[in-house]
Amino acid sequence: MSAALALGDDALVLSHRLGEWAGHAPVLEEEVALANIALDLLGQARVLLSLVGDEDELAYLREERAFRNLQLVEQPNGDFAHTIARQLYFSVYQHLLYERLAAGDGEFAPLAAKAVKEVAYHRDHAEQWVLRLGDGTEESHRRMQAGLDALWRFTGEMFQPVDGLDGPPSGVDREELRSRWLAAVADVVERATLTLPTGPQSGGWAAGAGRQGLHTEPFGRMIAEMQHLHRSHPGASW
């Protein structure tokens, strides 16, 4: 599996989910912020997919089993707290990963160096909202905890090795990534007066399922919507 495909699919799929918020956000400033994050991720996806082939062929003409994204990013938006929990888990991971890649001399270093600035903003946005929702009202506390709990079982996949990224000479150390991720997430969760979930990080799934093209049911419906128009006009350019 190509590492660019894995990273590109993560960004593409999460961007799509965030795009579903347009016109539905709880406050106008969040319309701007969520679209901003979605755009950053879409920009990253386009660069990464272009390293593999034609970005549109890859986005619009692959079937579900050929996507290599994490199951975490394909999870439906749920309520705002659910979306923010997904953002926290993913953007802390992506930030740590891209910092590492940017510091190395691998093929992703230049891309990661640019993206890491965007991702630092995404991470800050997610952390600030976890604090506000966790330490806001009783209801927001309950919803934020529910979001963190529901998505916890999809977090283990982030720490499965990806060919081309992991191992020597300049690769990512997943165990180090996991411990740094856990420390960062635990810190925010604690400051937000919330509890770090304790269940298994991979639920009933084989480790690294999404990376192998094994996805959850909502994903097929998501890409059906995403691909429908493009597939209806074979060979057309837009």
């Binding site: 709880p26 929702l133 927001s140």
Partner: peptide, 11 residues
């Protein structure tokens, strides 16, 4: 979105 705005205000 009311609960989100209320949470932000309470925080």
């Amino acid at each position: 979105g009311a609960w989100v705005r209320e949470a932000a205000a309470a925080y």
